[in-house]
Amino acid sequence: MAQVPLAIASHKRQVCSLYKRALRNLEAWYDRRNVYRYRAVQLRARFDENRCKDLGEGIRLLACGQRELFETKHFQPRNFANSSGGCAYEREVIPPDWLLDYWHPLEKAQYPEYFAKREQRKKEYVTWWEKQYGKPDPKDLGHH
């Protein structure tokens, strides 16, 4: 299933995507900013050169470009630390509060005081909310 494309990308979008990926790849290879800019300008010129070719030629060039990118892909791409693939991505996972509501009653029974207080606080919060913002519209309640 993983190979099934979820959307059909137009030729233009594929070229744009290739350009962006090629730029990121250049960024990984040429780490000094001035050198990277020089190479990026050269890359842009290569793309611009083939701008108004006919579609058949464009498809062939796109395939060539994708192949070239694959063959020169950096073995350790430059990732931002907190983004996907980076070293600090999802370091601290703080479980959301609502998770506790999904505990099994038997699990909840192990901490009776805590859960009694929690239920009490939930009621207090609803009261506070209604006092602050009014009662919800009955139309908005329930599933749609």
Partner: peptide, 10 residues
């Protein structure tokens, strides 16, 4: 100091 970034290229 680099906000968790470990890449020497940065």
């Amino acid at each position: 100091n680099m906000n968790n970034s470990q890449d020497i290229r940065l």
